[in-house]
């Protein structure tokens, strides 16, 4: 079971809340202070991507964020319910400069992959999940 779970309406204004919650729980779990910026950014990117997918596909469901303290690591799962997240749309790019949803989507994923060593992106017909984890150091556990 997740330590903290969050569901939020797929709207840009809530992405910040998800970042703040994720960073707070990660800090408590013992993720190194120096890495918290990465956690914040990676969660923001993953949630931004999920919100974009929900909005562009007219999905009413909330975006799910599960934050889990494990024995030696801290895991985060961001789930969307957008069926088309599967494709990551090769060939579906080419939007106008103003919107560029696919381009920004890919840049977000590029940032996540550049930042996080342990990351897994899975997709299915019912939606996609981005799983990431960071090591925790027991010494730095917040009492």
């Amino acid at each position: 079971m997740a330590t903290v779970e969050l569901r939020f309406s797929a709207l840009p204004e809530h992405v910040r809340t998800a970042r703040l919650v994720a960073a707070a729980v990660a800090r408590r779990a013992g993720v190194d202070e120096a890495v918290l910026d990465e956690v914040r950014l990676a969660v923001g990117e993953a949630c931004t991507r999920a919100v974009g997918l929900h909005l562009s596909n007219g999905v009413d469901a909330p975006v799910r964020v599960a934050l889990t303290e494990e024995e030696k690591k801290f895991s985060i799962e961001i789930g969307d319910e957008s069926p088309t997240s599967a494709a990551l749309a090769p060939g579906a790019t080419g939007g106008e400069e103003e919107s560029e949803p696919e381009g920004e989507d890919e840049m977000g994923l590029a940032v996540i992959k550049g930042l996080v060593d342990d990351v897994e992106v899975t997709t299915s017909e019912t939606g996609g999940v981005i799983r990431m984890s960071w090591p925790t150091s027991p010494d730095s556990l917040v009492p």
């Binding site: 970042r19 914040r40 950014l41 923001g44 990117e45 931004t48 400069e97 560029e100 381009g103 920004e104 840049m107 977000g108 590029a110 940032v111």
Partner: peptide, 16 residues
Amino acid sequence: DFLDSTGLGVLVGGLK
């Protein structure tokens, strides 16, 4: 305090 890929996209758009 914080910049993500959406912000990068806007800066690239500005440069263009």
